[in-house]
């Protein structure tokens, strides 16, 4: 089965619940394993939260396009924004997982989750837009 869904949202945190709910409905419909569905949900939240908080200057309204796609053997999530360039593959600092409690920082965990839990993570900057796509084999 091949299926896809697109949703346009604003860079507002309230949108997260709507988009997460939609992904949950789709993964149920697509009969995705619950563990994989949860990892997809986690990576969606991490990637989208980054865009909502940091892609656009504070107080400025911005558009975000989220796409979900079922292909043969995988589910992919795409997030596109017109904010400042950010390449998660190169611009995100890897968290120091060995640090002591005192030194441990939380930054970078979201992107780390996407790299660890997904099979693919791609980034492109096209026409002044950030395009992130990550996918998981099902």
């Amino acid at each position: 089965m091949i299926d896809s869904y697109r949703i346009n949202i604003k860079n507002e945190l309230d949108e997260l619940a709507t988009v997460s709910q939609k992904l949950e409905e789709l993964t149920e419909k697509w009969e995705v394993d619950m563990g994989i569905a949860m990892n997809l949900s986690l990576c969606l939240e991490e990637a989208l939260t980054n865009v909502i908080f940091y892609a656009y200057p504070k107080g400025e309204s911005g558009d975000i396009l989220v796409t979900f796609q079922l292909e043969s053997g995988s589910v992919s999530v795409g997030i596109e924004d017109e904010g400042i360039a950010f390449n998660p593959l190169t611009d995100s600092k890897e968290p120091d997982l060995e640090a002591s409690i005192e030194d441990r920082q939380i930054g970078g965990l979201g992107i780390h989750f996407i790299k660890q839990f997904m099979d693919e993570l791609d980034y492109q900057r096209i026409n002044n837009k950030n395009q992130i796509v990550f996918s998981k084999k099902i």
Partner: peptide
């Protein structure tokens, strides 16, 4: 697994 991958199981 989220706790393991984040390194939180050791802190």
């Amino acid at each position: 697994e989220i706790f393991v991958v984040s390194g939180f199981t050791s802190i």
